[in-house]
């Protein structure tokens, strides 16, 4: 009994025990290779973590963009250097909202294909996910299952 508690205590006390969950990543098919693409996903970190960098072999740059839409309906994007992830809170990227902008694509994003995306977390380290490319009118993977 005592032993079990100790193991549990050790596990939870270890700062390197980072748990990052990336849910439902997708990118919209791009129309022209010369135009930027966008990736959407949801991240949940517990304990808290920070997304430090994003990259993919299919684009020269990947930037986290937040979108601020004012009362006047004007949408302004701004690049975030890092994305803080509060413990247990889900950060959702979705059309019209936060997204990862991919610029200088090496190729057009074709529906049905996937590409790798590397995410570097401060505590969680680096993870590579496969991003499915959905149709141009898609609103996300939820729709794709219908």
């Amino acid at each position: 009994m005592i032993r079990t508690v100790l193991i549990a205590a050790t596990l939870f006390a270890t700062p390197a025990f980072a748990d990052v969950t990336v849910t439902a990543p997708w990118a919209r098919a791009s129309i022209l290779a010369s135009r930027p693409g966008a990736v959407y996903l949801a991240i949940n970190a517990d304990p808290a973590d920070t997304l430090l960098a994003v990259s993919t072999p299919i684009a020269k740059a990947a930037m986290i963009h937040s979108v601020e839409t004012g009362e006047d309906g004007i949408a302004r994007m701004s690049a975030l250097a890092t994305l803080p992830l509060a413990a247990g809170a889900v950060v959702t990227m979705a059309p019209g909202d936060m997204h990862i902008m991919l610029t200088d694509l090496t190729e057009k994003l074709l529906e049905g294909e996937t590409f790798p995306l590397d995410l570097t977390f401060e505590t969680g380290g680096e993870v590579t996910i496969d991003v499915p490319i959905l149709g141009i009118a898609s609103k996300g993977p939820v729709e794709a299952t219908q």
């Binding site: 025990f17 969950t21 849910t23 939820v142 729709e143």
Partner: peptide, 18 residues
């Protein structure tokens, strides 16, 4: 409105150091 909170594609990525 389609608000499916249940029909999620879930990809779980876990990254631990130890």
């Amino acid at each position: 409105q389609i608000t499916s909170a249940h029909r999620k594609l879930r990809i779980i990525l876990w990254s631990g150091a130890i």
